[in-house]
Design a protein around this nucleic acid. Structure first.
Lengths: 110, 110
DNA sequence: TTGATATATAAACATATGTTCATATGTTTG
DNA sequence: CAAACATATGAACATATGTTTATATATCAA
């Protein structure tokens, strides 16, 4: 099934969104909707797990800010984390977000 | 190609996001990330076009608030509009958002 | 042209969000 | 146990966002 076919075949799926799920979907999307968070998701889509320092270095971002964003996404259930010694590794828990971002990224109109 | 395969095959697409596109994608996602706007998109995914009143009635929402959300999504390029007499009809311009929402909605973890 | 209908807009406000800075916590190593 | 390292946390702030209310604009019909 291709992306275009998904669009056509699942029209009514959106219609079936009850208000609780509506809130959840909106909440996840809101959490993703930030350049740095998208970048982090991008990194974690090609690396099974990364520690905070890895991410800071790869993105050239501040430790504290990065940590805040990671905590935020973890709280939303998008990421998970495991401590290994001094490091804490983050990984993608909600893999669907890859599809979401990929889909938007492919979009010609942007 | 299934959704899972899309995820696997397009890993590097996220990685290729330059900072300009990153901003755009984040911006669109931020615009979508709201329960009422998701509902509107849902309605417009099964109706080619709807006027403001239609949408207000179907969602039980206030005219002004609805209008604000519609204007917002139009400004972001997600919706388009056409006047027909007294009515202004809105339609989906950025169809990709259907896939985004459908993908999130399918997500078991939510 | 007036009234009714449909929609947009602007101001005001409350709330949420992103960022920075300083500091705290937890872990390893010597 | 102290020092170094990795990360988290909390306060403070600026900015952005969602909502309401009131009013303006546009179109049609009589």
């Amino acid at each position: 099934m291709k992306v275009e076919e998904i669009q056509l075949n699942t029209e009514d799926i959106i219609g079936n969104l009850d208000s609780e799920k509506l809130e959840k979907v909106a909440f996840i999307l809101k959490t993703i909707a930030h350049p740095m968070r998208i970048s982090i998701i991008g990194l974690l889509s090609v690396n099974d797990k990364l520690c905070v320092n890895d991410i800071c270095e790869k993105l050239g971002s501040e430790q504290s800010l990065t940590s805040h964003h990671l905590a935020n996404m973890k709280l939303s259930g998008i990421l998970g984390s495991v401590r290994e010694g001094k490091n804490i590794f983050y990984y993608l828990k909600l893999k669907e977000v890859i599809t979401v971002i990929t889909c938007m990224n492919k979009c010609q109109l942007l």
